[in-house]
Simulated assay, not measured.
Amino acid sequence: MVELAGEILNLPIPPHDEVLPYSESCTDKSVHDLNADNVVLCRAGDDNQLGIILEIQREKDKRKRFSWPA
């Protein structure tokens, strides 16, 4: 998933030793629950290098373009 995200988004992926699953659940200041489909954290030793949040879209819905920048 990490390499694919780098290719699709044209992002440099920092060196890392491991990729760990991470919580898909977040809460914003207004106490709205936000849940992603998948989240991973790339780490090098004890240092976090990159977090990737995956949200799968099954159809083109222009309203959703602005629902996940949160």
Results as ranks from 00 to 15, higher is better:
M1N: 04
V2D: 05
E3S: 12
L4S: 05
L4A: 09
G6T: 08
E7M: 11
E7T: 10
I8M: 14
L9Y: 04
N10Y: 02
P12H: 07
I13P: 09
I13Y: 04
P14T: 06
P14K: 07
P14E: 05
P15N: 08
H16E: 06
H16D: 07
V19R: 02
L20A: 01
L20S: 01
P21T: 08
Y22H: 13
Y22E: 14
Y22R: 11
S23P: 00
S23F: 01
S23I: 09
S23Q: 08
S23H: 02
S25R: 14
S25A: 08
C26N: 05
D28N: 15
K29P: 09
V31I: 09
V31W: 10
D33M: 10
N35A: 08
A36T: 02
N38C: 12
V39I: 14
V40T: 12
V40R: 10
R43F: 06
R43Y: 07
R43W: 03
G45L: 10
G45T: 05
D46R: 10
D47N: 09
N48M: 12
N48K: 10
N48W: 06
Q49D: 04
G51E: 12
I52Y: 06
I53M: 09
E55M: 12
I56Y: 08
I56K: 01
Q57V: 05
Q57G: 07
Q57I: 03
Q57H: 10
R58C: 14
R58P: 05
K60Q: 11
R63G: 05
R65V: 13
F66K: 11
F66Q: 10
W68S: 06
P69D: 10
